[in-house]
């Protein structure tokens, strides 16, 4: 075997390895940069995701506009040397109402839950109501805030140390038809709960005006400080 031939074969081998290396490198980089997880979604899932993102982005645009108006008002008041107490108070009222720190009232639905439902299924009902855009929730007269969890075994459920009777009521303020539609649709949460717990009945009633109390808990964490 001549030296030149071997040298040529080496070159071919090296070239092949280099090409393979390049291809794998590109594939790997693509796999890393495409780590969005979207590749695991079917076309139907992607359509759902796009719809969800659209809704959320619209809400965010409204919130950005509201916040911009608030910022402009505050800036103008300060430039004029005016008191911005009114602005501060309306901001405070808005945050408190959203967070569950003051009583709120509005239209919505009442859900009566009867029978041996599990605490997880009852919590899933609250999750579905939030997903459907409920603005404030109450369970047996207790305002639902972060950390409000329905616990206990079927027949002995409780929320925030308040025992739930059988039946118990869930109140949701928001767009009644949207909330009702979301709960009662085929394959929705009510259908799922009934399939899992045949003894449970859930009825939904539209209500013109629901009042919900403020939470009785302090929501300020005692083991955390603001991150600057």
């Amino acid at each position: 075997m001549s030296h030149s031939l071997r040298s040529g074969r080496n070159q071919v081998t090296l070239a092949l390895v280099a090409v393979l290396l390049g291809v794998l490198l590109v594939v790997q980089l693509r796999a890393q940069s495409g780590g969005t997880g979207l590749e695991t979604l079917s076309a139907q899932d992607l359509s759902d995701l796009v719809a969800n993102l659209n809704t959320r982005n619209d809400q965010l645009r409204v919130e950005v506009a509201t916040t911009q108006a608030q910022l402009d008002g505050l800036t103008a008041a300060q430039a004029r040397g005016d008191s911005s107490l009114g602005q501060l108070q309306s901001d405070l009222a808005r945050v408190r109402a959203w967070a569950g720190l003051v009583p709120v009232a509005g239209p919505g639905i009442r859900i009566d839950v009867a029978g041996p439902i599990s605490s997880i299924a009852a919590d899933d009902l609250l999750n579905e109501l939030r997903n459907a855009g409920a603005e404030a929730l109450g369970v047996a007269g207790v305002r639902v805030v972060p950390g409000s969890v329905i616990g206990g075994d079927p027949g002995g459920l409780s929320i925030e140390d308040t025992a739930l009777a059988d039946p118990f009521e869930v109140d949701a303020i928001g767009n009644g038809p949207t909330l009702t539609g979301s709960l009662t649709r085929a394959g929705g949460i009510i259908a799922q709960v009934k399939a899992t717990f045949p003894g449970v009945t859930i009825t939904v009633t539209p209500i013109d005006m629901i009042g919900l109390p403020a939470t009785t808990r302090s929501l300020v964490p005692s083991h955390a400080i603001p991150r600057l």
Binding site: R94, V95, A97, W98, V104, A105, I207, L212, P213, A224
Partner: peptide, 25 residues
């Protein structure tokens, strides 16, 4: 442990601050 701030809407279209009421009508 560090937690982020919620960056979402606080907009309430249906719920209004109300004087203390019984929890249901």
């Amino acid at each position: 442990v560090a937690l982020p701030a919620f960056a979402g809407s606080l907009n309430l279209r249906y719920a209004r601050p109300a004087p203390p009421l019984p929890p249901s009508p």
